[in-house]
Amino acid sequence: MTSTRDGVPGHLLFDRLSALDIAAFVVDGTDLSPGSAIPSDGDPRIDHALAGFLFTCGPDHIRHPEPVEGCDEGRRYPLHGSLAGTTVTRAKMSADDTRCEALTEVDLACGGKAAVERRWYVSENGQSVMLEDRVTNIGQSAFAPMMMYHMNIGGRLLGPETHIVSPSIEGGSLGWQFGEGESAHFCIPAVGEEGWSEVLLAPLPGLGGRRLAVRFRVDTLPFLQMWRCQRGGANVISIEPASHRLAKRGELAASGELGAIEPGQSHGYALGFAVS
């Protein structure tokens, strides 16, 4: 799929082997994706997905493995959930290469099943790439929907002048090498206007001083998580709109934050991004 911003074309390469995530995002000949400059958690699904520009965590779990509730068989939710590595059931690209729709049916770790209806499209002004997801419970029992979108940027494109800019951040701005040590992350409530929050990564000296802008719906993605890793050969930073705060499933359930959708019910999620 192709978009244009300020006269500069951007090309997206979709990954049909992983829920129509984005394997590469090329702007003016430069791929923003980290490629092989990522750490490995030992899960080949995630190693494959993390090398791309965007991969989707969920729809049943979004972080590190945890036991499945009420299951005494030692069953665990996999790293980042069940969707990553799931082949697209069907997909269709528009003739003008500006829209793509897909359906992915995924078997959940809890024994249920969900359908992820995905729509990628270029905004009306042609300057932003938009994603709309609808997660529907097509199984026989309720499950707790959880979603997080990893948008991965190669650290080679950033410099000492690069900052994270967002109304969600105290003071409005933070240097991209936040925290201490070789790896760090944070998860904060997303602040926005008219139902959307925004975060910028700018400037990107490895991309001609341009900036990456990301917007996301705060009703179903009410948290902004960010992660970076500069360890060994890894050099990556990730913008991660998330449905839940950083806490164990048991804690989220006890406080009423985990939620559930019954068979036939759906939740919707949306985000957009642009380089300018």
Score class of each variant (00 low, 15 high):
D6S: 14
G7C: 11
P9K: 05
G10Y: 01
D21N: 14
A23S: 14
A23W: 06
A23K: 15
F25Q: 09
F25E: 07
V26W: 00
V27G: 00
D28L: 08
G29V: 13
S33H: 07
A37E: 13
P39A: 05
D41K: 11
A49T: 11
L50I: 09
L54C: 13
P59M: 05
H61L: 01
H61W: 01
R63G: 05
P65L: 04
P67V: 09
G70P: 06
G70E: 10
G70V: 07
R75S: 08
P78I: 05
P78F: 03
S82G: 04
A84D: 11
V88F: 02
T89Q: 08
A91M: 11
A95Y: 10
T98I: 13
T98C: 10
A102L: 01
L103E: 15
L103F: 05
L103W: 07
T104F: 00
L108M: 00
A115V: 06
R119D: 14
R119G: 13
W120D: 12
S123H: 04
E124V: 09
N125Y: 06
G126E: 07
Q127F: 03
S128W: 11
M130K: 11
E132I: 15
N137R: 05
N137L: 03
N137K: 03
Q140P: 08
Y149D: 14
Y149K: 15
Y149F: 14
H150C: 13
M151W: 15
N152A: 14
G154N: 05
G154H: 03
G155P: 02
R156P: 02
L157A: 00
L158S: 00
G159F: 01
P160S: 09
E161T: 14
E161L: 08
T162M: 00
T162A: 00
I164G: 04
I164T: 12
I164W: 12
L174D: 05
L174Y: 03
L174P: 04
G175D: 07
G179P: 11
E180P: 05
E180T: 15
E182R: 07
S183N: 12
C187Y: 06
I188F: 03
I188C: 06
A190Q: 10
V191G: 04
E194W: 07
V199D: 02
L204R: 02
G209Y: 00
V214R: 07
V214I: 14
V214T: 09
R215H: 12
R217M: 14
R217V: 15
V218C: 13
D219Q: 15
C229F: 03
A234L: 01
N235A: 04
I237N: 07
S238T: 10
H244E: 05
R245A: 09
R245W: 09
L246M: 12
K248R: 12
L252Q: 11
E257I: 04
G259I: 02
P263N: 01
Q265W: 00
S266V: 01
S266Q: 01
L271Y: 08
L271Q: 04
G272F: 04
V275E: 00
